[in-house]
Nucleic acid binder design. Structure first.
Lengths: 176, 176
DNA sequence: CTGCTATATGAAACAATATTACAATAGTTG
DNA sequence: CAACTATTGTAATATTGTTTCATATAGCAG
């Protein structure tokens, strides 16, 4: 059963985070990646909402928890998490959000963890609500052929692509 | 006759700039926009190559010409030019490049200037060479239906979208 | 277990990018 | 010209990200 991409503003977010963290643990274990304490904490902060969060917000957030870090520590964790495909970076706002697409099926169906679904090999497509800040990540496969067509016509060799779509999400349209 | 999106590295760029500046002058006049001396100078700097240029590069560049400005002056001009659709901003690299699409047909065919072709109403699509830095801007209309489909399925109301495709351009593939 | 090595984190300074707030000037309109 | 709006100047400051070098810790070979 398919979840809505943009959950209600008042939904119970604890399921989202716990599923995500569960997946992250399993995934890193299987992939031989080290989800250290720091990296895990940073991921928790990023996954704390469906909005994108800035590096310095994470920093402040951790400081409030008593964990005072240098910016570089956060950036290093973010780099790791992004590399692992667990989070994405919104280029237009210099901020980060958790990838939800990895585990939506897997965990509920008790499927084996499929590694790196959101890998760099297929286009990243994000719907960004400029009202509430929520991000919805969309399957990029559908635009891939189109990108290939465009690229081929210019003999351009594609390595990576990211599509950021800004507008208003369902929840915000409803509550306006 | 269609120009290549990625001209040879050693092409004569003076045609590119002079066409672009000619268009900018006509366009702003017709649209009632004031292409002031400063804005025009900034546009010349941006249009000086097919690569994207950073705000502080422009600043340094102008300083070298004897014109010492504060960052804000450059940013204000960039904002104006972007608003006018004469330049675009690469989100992934915090840099700016000139829109070539406006005048490729118009000037050569002696057509009347068509205002604001690259307006925010249709998706922006850029091919970005990570070797030489050249940018090729592509007609975004072809991906528009796809974006609409995705958005509609989530009841998301689209305002603006930008697709940044990274890879290697023709010229760089040839010379490697 | 011991030491070796690779990986990860800490700490401080700094670089790059962008904005705020307010004053001065230029251009436009009545 | 007077009043008004748009543009630019000036200075300070905010935000985002990196370099460099030192220290610690995990994983592994002997």
């Amino acid at each position: 059963m398919k979840q809505s991409l943009f959950p209600q503003h008042d939904h119970d977010h604890s399921d989202c985070t716990s599923n995500l963290m569960k997946f992250a643990d399993l995934y890193c274990q299987q992939a031989g990646l080290r989800l250290t304490k720091l990296r895990r904490t940073v991921l928790e902060k990023v996954a704390a909402s469906h909005k994108a969060i800035g590096a310095y917000q994470i920093l402040d957030n951790l400081a409030a928890d008593g964990q005072k870090l240098a910016p570089i520590s956060v950036y290093r964790s973010l780099d790791f998490l992004q590399e692992a495909g667990l989070i994405h970076r919104l280029e237009s706002t210099n901020s980060y959000f958790a990838c939800q697409r990895n585990f939506d099926d897997d965990l509920t169906n008790n499927n084996p963890i499929s590694l790196n679904k959101c890998s760099e090999t297929s286009p990243l497509v994000f719907l960004i609500c400029d009202n509430c800040g929520a991000i919805g990540e969309v399957e990029g496969a559908s635009i891939e052929p189109l990108i290939e067509t465009v690229a081929n016509s210019e003999k351009f060799k594609v390595k990576h692509s990211q599509l950021e779509i800004k507008g208003t999400c369902t929840s915000c349209q409803a509550s306006s």
